[in-house]
Nucleic acid binder design. Structure first.
Lengths: 207, 207
DNA sequence: TTGCTTTTTGACCAATTGGTAAAGCCACGA
DNA sequence: TCGTGGCTTTACCAATTGGTCAAAAAGCAA
């Protein structure tokens, strides 16, 4: 039986599929889709190339699977932002979660960045169907928070962009940061800086 | 005579080399080094592949040439930040220059981002010899501005990171932004937002 | 053990890749 | 007119690439 059919996957299938996906994440996140080779993935996974193709129909399916799985993880911190919570607390917690994710899942961050950098050829549908509605909803929430006077008036869309940019920067540009910072613990520094940055931006002036 | 020797380049050499570099920028900025092919570059340049290799010794030399040229352009806005100017004015002007560059040279921004994303395999020497000293010098300038009370106390290094992240984001993640913003003129919005962001961060509280 | 399915592999393939060699083209000065 | 030197192309190559196939090996239930 081919591994692609929709039977319940065996234990060995589970193990090998996740071995392959983990190896592919290593390779794709560094070289991008075109730059990655099945041989690299096979070697990183400790499996033969035909064996890889026994579990996935081709290079593209591996990449797409990876991106699909990533999308959930990636949106989760924003999903958790609670419209009924305290605005400033919620937004700062969101920043912190994104920052934590940059540190815990740098490969995923780079995979995502690389895909967007290339024009999102394989991810655009996901962006439109999953990210866009969530983005619009949360921007509306932020807008309401502003109108109620709980936040300083800022453009919600560009606020979210700036949160993404500043937090993901620590994963995506790690190579550059590694050259510029001799001290190898930018973690608490970055935390404090970004908290300060967004606190000052968002603190309402008239209480 | 081979085109690589150090004679003064002819008019046709100038033209073809810049044709090639422009085409290569198109291709490398989208696909990265490994994902780009000489055939793509050749077609984009309107030249034959062997003709490309008449002007450059190989794929790698094209890429390296591109990165070297980019480095100057890339550092320029930071070089212009004047230690003797008004701190807030200088920093906001730096942000604006970086933002302008994101809009005028998005391919270069993506080429740079892609190279860093891959661990800066070909650019690390440039980062260490060119960027690092400049970065340290300008961070020291900012630190002095803070100590004189002209700026609020923030970590200069992470301040610079946040400026890079927020400005380059508009070029590097343009595909994502294009999906999320139906209005296709984020330009003035982004300008105003970032000016607000960094003004609030940096305004000294005790005048 | 037997018999069946699932998993793995070695051999192979056509297409693409970066790169080369040599011959041809094209001014342009003598 | 003929060279001569820079420029361009045609033909080609070895290595790598994504992918196939049939057969072997490994599980595993009876």
């Amino acid at each position: 039986m081919a591994a692609g059919t929709d039977k319940k996957p065996s234990r060995i299938q589970m193990r090998n599929r996740s071995l392959i996906l983990d190896a592919a994440l290593d390779v794709f996140s560094v070289h991008g889709f075109r730059g990655a080779t099945l041989d690299q993935i096979a070697e990183a996974a400790g499996l033969s190339k035909p064996n890889i193709l026994y579990y996935f129909s081709g290079k593209e399916e591996i990449h797409v699977t990876l991106l699909s799985q990533l999308m959930e993880t990636w949106l989760d911190p924003l999903v958790e932002m609670d419209a009924d919570g305290d605005p400033m607390t919620e937004l700062l917690a969101y920043v912190q979660r994104k920052l934590d994710m940059s540190r815990e899942l740098p490969r995923e961050s780079r995979l995502f960045a690389g895909e967007i950098l290339q024009g999102a050829p394989r991810m655009r549908p996901h962006l439109e169907s999953d990210l866009k509605p969530l983005f619009d909803e949360k921007c509306a929430v932020i807008q309401r928070w502003i109108e109620v006077g709980k936040l300083a008036p800022v453009n919600p869309q560009h606020l979210v962009f700036s949160i993404w940019a500043t937090t993901q920067h620590y994963a995506d540009f790690a190579a550059q940061i590694g050259v510029l910072l001799e001290t190898d613990e930018p973690a608490p520094m970055a935390d404090a800086f970004l908290r300060d940055l967004f606190t000052k931006l968002l603190a309402p002036t008239i209480p």
